[in-house]
Simulated scan of single mutants.
Amino acid sequence: MTNYDIIVVGGGPIGSTYAYKMAKLGYDVALFDMKNRIGQPLQCAGIVSTNIKDTKNLPEEFISNKVKGANLLSPNGTSITVEKDDNSAYVLDRVLYDKYLFNRAVDAGATAFYGERVLDVDMDNTRITTTNGKYSSNIIAVACGPNSATSKKMNPNFKEESYTGIQYTLKTEPSDTEYVDVRVNTSILPGFIWKIPVSPTEQRLGLFTNGSHKQANQILTNMMDSGSTIIQKHYGLIPRFNVNKKIVENNTILLGDSANQIKPTTGGGLVTGFNCTTIAAKNSNKMLEEDNNNYLKQYETEYHKKYDSEFKAQQNVQKIIKSMDEDDFNYMFKELKDNNVDKIISEYGDMDNQVPLLKQLVKTGVIFKLLPKIGVRRLKNIWKSL
C-alpha cells in the first residue's frame, strides 16, 4: 500500500487548489481524478465575480471576456440594467483554467493519478481503494462533485438536494459583450435563465431548474436567436447549500460541491470554494504539525462562521422568489425601476455577498414597497437573517 500525507479525491478547481496549497507547504500529496482529460466536459456557466482576484488564483490569460454589468429581465420584458464603473465579472475559459489549476498542483509536487476512479474512501482508517490499488494517508480531502459517495457515507440520513443545470454554447451574430442577461421564467423558479457573452460571436445560454431536462431544453431552444447555432450542450448538477451537512469525519474532509459550498441564489461556487481551500489548508497544516485532528473540525467551524449568515439570507430570498408568479415579478420589476433601484444594486450589488444589498434595500425603504407581493412574514424572515 502506498502512503501519502494527503490524498485529494477530485481534480476539479477546488480539489486542485487544495492539493496545490498542501504540496506548496511541502507535504506529499496524491491527486486523483477519474477523467483522463481535466476540465472536460464543461459543467459550469463559467462566469465569476471580480472578487476572485482576492483569491490570487486567476491568471489573466484564462479570462475570455470582462463583463461590466447585467440586464435583469422580468417575464413581460421590463428591464433593469445594473453595472459597475469597472468590470463586475469575468467570463472564463473553464476548460483551460481547470487544466491550469490541476497542472499547478502537479508542478508544486503533487502526484497526479489521471483516469483512476476512487471506488471507496475508508474514513475510519484514512485509506482509499481505486480501480488500480489501495492508498493511505493522514488526511483525505474529497472534492469530487455533488454525487460524492463519501459525502453520502458521511451523511447517511441527510437528504441531498440539487438543481439540474443545462447550458448551450452558441455561435451567434455579432452582439454586445459587456452585459449578461438574467431573465425570470416562472416555470423554473427559483432558477433563472442566463445569457453570457464569451465573445462578439459566442454566447453561453443556460438555466438551472427543478424541472425535467426536456422542459429545460425546450425553454433554451425557444430563447435562441434565429441566427444562433448550438456548438455544444452541457449538463450538470448544482448542489443546494444545507447548514446541517456534515463535512468532517475523523481525518476526512469534504470541499467544494461535495460539501455543498454553493451560493443558493446563483449556484456559483468558485470563489466560495477557493476561500474554503484556504481555511482547509491552514487547519490541515496545523493538524499534521501537531497530530491533532481537532483542527479539521476547526475548518468546518470557520467555514460556517464565514458563510452561514450570507447563505441563509440568500435562501430566504430564494424562498420568496419561488413563491412568486408572473404578475408578482412584473409588479416588482416596475416598482424597482420606478424607484431607481438600478443605482442601489449597481452600488451595493455583489454576486458573492448579497447581504449588504439587502440591508440597503431595507435602509432606503424600497423593500417595503414590495410588501403587497412579498408579505410581512417573508420580509421578517429576510430581516432576521441580516
Rank of each mutant, 00 (worst) to 15 (best):
V9P: 07
S16Q: 03
M22E: 10
D28G: 06
D28T: 10
K35P: 04
K35L: 06
K35G: 01
I38E: 01
I47V: 15
V48C: 01
S49E: 08
D86V: 13
S88A: 15
S88L: 12
A108S: 10
A108N: 03
D122L: 03
T126Q: 05
R127Q: 15
T129L: 12
A141W: 02
P146S: 12
T150I: 01
T150S: 04
N155E: 04
N157F: 11
Y163P: 05
Y168S: 04
K171L: 12
Y179H: 12
V180I: 15
N185Q: 10
P190T: 04
W194V: 07
I196S: 02
P200F: 07
T209E: 05
S212N: 05
I231Y: 02
Q232N: 15
Y235W: 11
G236C: 13
L237M: 12
P239S: 07
I253S: 07
L254P: 00
S258Y: 03
Q261N: 07
P264A: 03
N283R: 05
L288A: 07
Y295E: 09
H304Q: 12
D308W: 08
Q315M: 13
D325S: 09
D325L: 07
F333R: 02
N340M: 13
L357T: 09
I367N: 08
L371W: 06
W383I: 15
